[in-house]
């Protein structure tokens, strides 16, 4: 589709217009941190953010969601949430993580709870101008994104943005504004430059191999002493799981109302670093050692899921590096150590 230009003022006006019809969720600053949240005015948006504490995943796969209601007599009824909303300002690495989750929840079997919410969501992606302290998406090939978004915003060096329309859904979002001028060739070139620059600058940690080499690298290092060494400090807190845009493992839990007559069955985030993740009734734990759980996470990201879906399930956002208290979760450090310093 086409690429338009839009001034910052016009962008703000357009967002405020959108807010009259829809929920808009975007990056907002709180005490030096950024988080995706529902906004009431475009003034709240921090479009120059580097990274949010949690990925926008939480609006598509909420930390806790009702999947169905039940009566104690045994009838279950599905609950699907369809609240149209706009996810505004999603960085490329987070967009790619959402694209991966879309495949997980629709490729073999359809997860209607996820897809209903996903279909209600329009995504405005945003090329970043600031690099987060641990971002290495440039090494992972995820510093720019070609698909998944409905609209893509790229900041121009002086003022304003280029706005590419990716889908009809994106086009519909623009209904409220007058015809936007097409981007000039110069501006398109500036956009290319921004992409090239982001691919180069978003490398706060430098991976010493190609991402495509990771599955083989892991295959050869299952018994490497690193797993034991690093995980000996692991708190099994699951923070790396919680902040990860590609972690989607979940638990299913029932909640009964006070009446004991009705209740809800919920899906809640789970994490493979947590001690009881692979424990069965009776107490046998199939991943009892923290080293086994620690290793599993890296294999899942860079071997198991890639073999199933064809893409490395780490997008280089660096959130796990910031979140890990004992500082053992840096994927680049792990992979580089396996490559050999």
């Amino acid at each position: 589709m086409s690429v338009k230009q839009i001034s910052t003022n016009m962008l703000r006006g357009w967002i405020d217009g959108l807010l009259l019809q829809k929920t808009v969720i975007g990056p907002v600053q709180h005490q030096g941190h950024f988080r995706f949240e529902s906004i009431t005015s475009s003034d709240q948006l921090a479009l120059d953010y580097d990274v949010t504490d949690l990925p926008p995943k939480k609006f598509l796969l909420p930390p806790r969601e009702v999947m169905m209601t039940f009566r104690s007599s045994g009838e279950f009824q599905s609950v699907m949430e369809f609240h149209p909303f706009v996810l505004f300002g999603v960085h490329p690495y987070d967009m790619i993580a959402i694209n991966q989750m879309d495949r997980v929840f629709s490729e073999k079997l359809v997860d209607i709870h996820y897809l209903t919410r996903r279909n209600a969501c329009s995504i405005v992606a945003l090329d970043p101008v600031a690099v987060a302290p641990h971002n290495f998406s440039g090494c992972m090939g995820t510093a720019t994104v070609e698909k998944g978004w409905d609209l893509l915003l790229t900041p121009l060096p002086q003022d304003g943005y280029l706005l590419e329309i990716g889908t009809e859904k994106g086009n519909t979002l623009l209904h409220s504004i007058y015809e936007l001028p097409d981007a000039s060739l110069d501006q398109l070139q500036l956009r290319e430059q921004r992409w090239n620059q982001n691919q180069k600058s978003m490398r706060r940690h430098e991976l010493k191999c190609a991402p495509d080499d990771l599955p083989d690298l892991l295959e050869q290092n299952y018994d490497h002493p690193l797993w034991q060494e690093k995980s000996s400090q692991c708190l099994s807190c699951g923070a790396c799981n919680i902040v990860c845009p590609t972690c989607y493992c979940f638990d299913i839990q029932d909640e009964v109302d006070w009446s004991l007559e009705t209740g809800v069955r919920c899906r809640a985030w789970d994490g493979c670093l947590l001690r009881d993740f692979a424990e069965v009734a009776g107490g046998h734990n199939f991943r009892k050692q923290s080293a086994e759980r620690y290793r599993h996470r890296f294999y899942r990201k860079a071997s198991y899921l890639p073999k199933r879906f064809g893409e490395i399930a780490c997008v280089g956002c660096g959130r796990c590096i910031s979140a890990c208290i004992p500082n053992i979760s840096n994927p680049v450090e792990v992979y580089n150590q396996l490559v050999g310093e």
Binding site: V66, E81, P84, H113, T116
Partner: peptide, 20 residues
Amino acid sequence: MDPQIDSPVIGHPSSDIYLP
């Protein structure tokens, strides 16, 4: 806001792989 926004949509059971 759309009126539909506040009320969850009840889905078709046959399409829900989690529904017993």
